[in-house]
Design a protein around this nucleic acid. Structure first.
Length: 310
DNA sequence: TTAGGGTTACAG
DNA sequence: CTGTAACCCTAA
């Protein structure tokens, strides 16, 4: 009598998972934005109506999926302080069996549900989820304690030592440094950067600018390639060619990465206007990736994107 | 804007 | 009828 009740597709679930992995459960608005962006190419009106107009849909979906993964019944037990989920031994058609939903009253600092894979997951502190390149730069300069500031090479070396940035990370760093300098956050003297005295570093608006480094850090090396924010047209085609030979699981992983990278690229682009082209390319890749995933329509999409990515 | 409770559609 | 999933509402 009213609402037709549209069901979620596997692709949509995959995209949702990717969004949650990247931003954490709870940032539904942000996730929504990314999801709309990535999946819009499907011309799936359901997404437009569901995600565009009903933010709580993704929230509800995630709630359902989480509850399912924990084996609890519908949703009535919202008071779950779960710690570990054992694999459901029954059938293998339960794709979401690896969530560790740390979501109780106050044992975990924030309500950010941590999605954990079963394999090579290093210690991911709950608070370490949002590292920004800006902060890394500040951290580097601060830690290096150079009198006149640190030059780009030194900063890059520091960050590369502490984290696991992509290959052309230095290129992005350059743009970022330039931007921060023009913005007054940094002061550049003789090729050396120092933190501006007055400006307590804080990025005005955006919180969605999660750093691709973060995602990059955990992406297993097997998918480590020449991709990054700076995707060229040919690189995208190359990626797509690879995807066509992928399994559904790998395609899902690629789609997940596409989500992350598109978001990262777009976030960067918003700050450094120079990156607009990169964002476009990354977005194109994301869309293409989703399209590929869509057209594939594997037997029953029982992939676990967490497994696939991490 | 989000967390979380309530409501309704749909499948078994 | 019962359980599940999508949808809706609202306090904070």
């Amino acid at each position: 009598m009213g609402a037709p009740k549209q069901k979620w597709t596997a692709e949509e679930e995959a995209a949702l998972k990717a969004g949650v992995i990247k931003h954490g459960a709870g940032k539904w608005r942000t996730i929504l934005k990314i999801l709309n962006l990535v999946v819009s190419c499907l011309c799936d009106q359901m997404w437009i109506s569901r995600l565009g107009l009903l933010p709580f849909s993704s929230q509800d979906k995630w709630r359902n999926m989480s509850v399912m993964a924990n084996g609890w019944s519908s949703r009535e037990k919202s008071k779950l302080a779960v710690k570990r989920v054992h694999h459901v031994p029954k059938q293998e058609e339960n794709p979401t069996a690896f969530y560790t939903v740390a979501q109780s009253d106050e044992d975990i600092s924030d309500t950010k549900s941590i999605v954990v894979a079963n394999s090579t997951m290093q210690t991911t502190g709950p608070k370490r989820t949002t590292v920004r390149l800006d902060n890394l730069i500040m951290e580097a300069i601060t830690s290096l304690k150079k009198p006149g500031g640190s030059n780009k090479t030194t900063i890059a070396a520091y960050i590369e030592e502490q984290y696991w940035p992509p290959h052309d990370f230095r290129r992005i760093l350059s743009a970022k440094l330039k931007y921060l300098t023009s913005n007054g956050k940094l002061i550049k003297v003789k090729r050396k950067y120092r933190i501006a005295p007055t400006s307590t570093f804080s990025d005005r608006r955006r919180n969605s600018s999660m750093l691709f480094l973060e995602a990059r850090q955990r992406i297993s090396p097997r998918v480590e390639k020449d991709d990054s924010n700076m995707l060229t047209k040919s690189q995208i085609d190359s990626e797509l060619a690879k995807m066509r030979t992928m399994t559904a699981q790998e395609a899902a992983a690629a789609a997940a990465r596409a989500v992350a990278e598109a978001e990262a690229a777009i976030a960067e682009a918003e700050e450094a206007t120079r990156e607009a082209e990169a964002a476009e390319a990354a977005q194109a890749f994301a869309e293409a990736a989703m399209k590929t995933l869509k057209s594939r329509t594997p037997p029953n999409m029982t992939f676990n994107i967490c497994d696939a990515v991490f």
